[in-house]
Simulated scan of single mutants.
Amino acid sequence: MAPDESTDVLTDFQRWFFTMSRLKSFNWAFVEKQLQSSKSSEFISEILKQTCLHPLCRAVPPSFRYRKSFLSELIRLQEAAGCDPLDELYDALAEVVGAAEGSECYKTYFLPCGGAISLLEKVALISGGTTGLVTWEAGLFLAEWALDHREFFTDRTVLELGSGVGLTGVAVCRSCSPKKFVFSDCHPAVLQALRDNVRLNGLGEGASPATSVRELDWTTATGEELREIGADVVIAADVVYDPAVMRGLVKLLRVVLTGSAPRPDVLLCCAVRNPQTYDGLRRQLESCGIKPEVLDGAVSRVFPYDRTANMELIRLTAADELQPSDATETI
């Protein structure tokens, strides 16, 4: 294997490991080829240094179950190739075998500018009656779009609706130089996770940019509350998977687009899993005088995630005839 090819494989292994990507995503064929040609465990040792033995794995580890499966696959390949046993590989496996699996784990996303975003997430997709405690694909897509369009956020106040565990917002704060960033959600467990993850990534009081985490219930927020935030940009990702919350979101967006001048730029990123739900959102937006415009174009592939879902990034603007909302209007 050429040195540059080997380096690329190691980099990919690190990115996929720390985001707990599906094991079938890894280039196991490259590892198998290297082991069979060299009859040495040296390459597995290099993989371990970039994954299970990396300092990040001590500080912000993936789940025990994930690490066990990952290490078991490395051992299977090593034994199949007839390589000498690697003590550090078995020691790493011994550390996770029998460990009690918790309900939380860390995922770490590496940034092009250097550094990384680490997030404490729930292992289950639905926990405590909410889906807001894991990172979803549309949030990753919107973060990649932000990294490609940093000027859109630079020196501006950004409000994020339905921030979840905070991936998109932290990426914007770390890479796009906003003046201020406001994370928001309404579920108590999600708000606590947001605060923890904001602190984990070195953001918060006294840090730059200025950041805050606030409770924002779409059904009770007022125009006055939104004007107090003073957002130049409003973003949201993967917030329309449930038709039951759509009405409150659309009404909130109407107040966002009519409650202050100049009107903020509003971006909504959707993974179109159910075309009927997505079409219903567009119809509700249009019936409220909000024009959705799909922003075309690919994004740089920064983070590893499932890209099979159809992503729609839409920019929302108010129709000319849309009248301003009352300052104290309750949504």
Rank of each mutant, 00 (worst) to 15 (best):
S41Q: 13
V213I: 10
Q50A: 13
A319P: 00
L249M: 12
R247C: 06
L281Y: 04
E46W: 07
A116M: 06
E101V: 04
K49H: 09
H149D: 02
G162Q: 09
R199W: 06
L268D: 10
A318V: 04
Q34W: 08
L249H: 09
F64D: 15
I235D: 15
V255L: 13
L111D: 01
F17A: 03
G82Y: 09
L257W: 03
E329W: 06
G166T: 07
R214E: 15
V182E: 12
I117E: 00
K49L: 15
R58T: 15
K122P: 03
M20Y: 01
G98L: 03
N274K: 12
C176K: 01
V245D: 14
F70Q: 03
L10N: 05
E101T: 07
V245L: 13
E32A: 15
C269V: 02
E104K: 08
E321G: 02
A231W: 08
P178W: 02
K251V: 04
S63A: 14
P243R: 08
I290G: 15
K291I: 13
A100V: 12
P55V: 00
L48T: 00
D185W: 10
P292H: 02
T328H: 10
A193K: 10
I331W: 05
A59S: 14
D238G: 08
Q36Y: 02
G169A: 09
L140Y: 02
L10M: 11
N201E: 11
E46N: 14
A309S: 11
C173N: 05
A189V: 05
S127W: 01
Q78W: 00
T277P: 00
E144G: 05
R263I: 04
L161V: 05
E144T: 02
P112D: 03
